[in-house]
Design a protein around this nucleic acid. Structure first.
Lengths: 117, 117
DNA sequence: CACTTGTACAAGTTATAACTTGTATTAGAC
DNA sequence: GTCTAATACAAGTTATAACTTGTACAAGTG
């Protein structure tokens, strides 16, 4: 064990529950390619700032968001590690999907034999 | 569109919500390698029969269970198609995972170049 | 037919999650 | 130090989910 036990609640349970909400999935999409301040995330929704802040809290405690502070702002970005447990579940329940994914990757990157994440 | 619009609620939402419960994930594990009658599924839990029946209902309406009737019994088994939306989400948020999966497959089946599901 | 077995449906309760409004905290600008 | 901006925290409300007990239904058995 190296950096395990992240003090966060990265159980499959928490991760799946966090993902099982469309607002939260949208937040993850917003920050997947770079960090965004909470306010800008909140501005994407019709919800109140506080409601979005709470969604951010749920994602953060599932380990799916990284927080960086810059003055009064808080910048969030996607943290992918907890998705590992989702992948694990998928692999367990749908092993054939691995083959499908493999083909998809081969079609997308024909000569790339599998760089790591 | 071929067999789409399954009258079920296979939205990512419903699927992820169904998966976000440990009892329900356990049910899926029980039936992943072959059908089981509801009673036998229920017997695996300390919950009441009715509670398990309701979990089965949730899984069924997410499209994750197939039901077959045999006399008074109802036999359930895993239906994998809805997991596609989970895979889609994963691919969207964590594209590198595809590479990881690809390697995993290659290690598991060195000369199998990716049979379909 | 009455009886039993396997199961779902139905209604009620309690727990939990989503959201709202109000307020506190923290950092920077003047 | 006062003001403003960005954000979280806190408490309350309402919606939803999980579970319970009770009951109905459908299929097989004597």
């Amino acid at each position: 064990m190296v950096g395990r036990t992240r003090s966060k609640n990265e159980t499959p349970d928490a991760v799946l529950r966090a993902l099982a909400d469309p607002h939260r999935r949208q937040i993850l999409r917003l920050v997947q390619h770079g960090e965004l301040p909470a306010g800008q995330i909140a501005a994407s929704f019709t919800l109140t700032q506080q409601a979005v802040s709470q969604h951010i809290g749920v994602l953060k405690s599932a380990g799916l968001l990284t927080e960086r502070r810059d003055g009064t702002r808080r910048l969030y970005s996607l943290r992918q590690e907890p998705l590992e447990s989702v992948r694990g579940l998928l692999a367990e329940l749908w092993p054939e999907a691995l083959s499908r994914l493999k083909r998809a990757v081969e079609e997308a990157h024909p000569r790339d034999s599998g760089r790591d994440a």
